[in-house]
Design a protein around this nucleic acid. Structure first.
Lengths: 110, 110
DNA sequence: ATACTTAGGTATCAAAATGATACTAATGGA
DNA sequence: TCCATTAGTATCATTTTGATACCTAAGTAT
């Protein structure tokens, strides 16, 4: 019902649907901070994800305009994934989460 | 195996396990920005969550030290939830996500 | 006294999401 | 000829999540 034109209120549910879930943040983090990756590289970079889930989440991210998918007509197959500009805009959010974790993990270090 | 002492690498999976999932960000957002809430208020504030899930996620957040739970010995029951200091440290991350969404939603407004 | 309301749950079962495993396609190399 | 390769799909088991009903015990109306 809300088309996004009145965003005085924080649209948390929309945001969280887009980047929430179990794997999306991990996928985005890699693509945002490490750049373009092939399917297999992503799989390797996220140890516990299954092929099925990686494919599914990548498609969802692609559908939301956060990830670009480039297929090469080669054999064996080669598919590259990269963060879109929109996704790269999330970098500050990732950095904030990182800082939070560090502050939490070592509250009295240094 | 990693106790948190070597966090040069971004501990994304750990962070995302703690605040990821489908509802945790929504719950935290409310408690962080709106302060202490009763169970029923949270339920009302997150339209699609079920009682079962709200209870479960609150318990998980409590277990991770992000939420405090205060039970009053009254009838009918009264239980208040609030964000811990650790959770409040996530405020910048939420703000970053909010900014991102706004920039994304109206790329050419003003 | 009896029955209804209340708020924060729990128990139970169905539905959906996720995980594990096996399978496919097209080419190059042994 | 047969195998390895990469990205992905198909199928089925397991785990999560959702829907619904039920519980507790005090206040309130009858």
């Amino acid at each position: 019902m809300n088309d996004g034109s009145d965003l005085n209120l924080c649209p948390a549910p929309l945001v969280f649907a887009m980047i929430g879930g179990k794997w999306k943040l991990s996928i985005l983090q890699i693509l945002i901070f490490q750049g373009t990756k092939r399917f297999g590289e992503l799989r390797h970079g996220i140890p516990d994800i299954t092929q099925t889930m990686l494919t599914k989440q990548l498609r969802a991210l692609e559908g939301d305009g956060l990830v670009d998918r480039k297929v090469y007509a080669e054999v064996p197959p080669k598919v590259e994934y990269s963060a879109t500009d929109v996704a790269i805009g999330l970098m500050p959010a990732f950095k904030a989460m990182h800082s939070w974790w560090e502050a939490k993990a070592r509250p009295s270090t240094n």
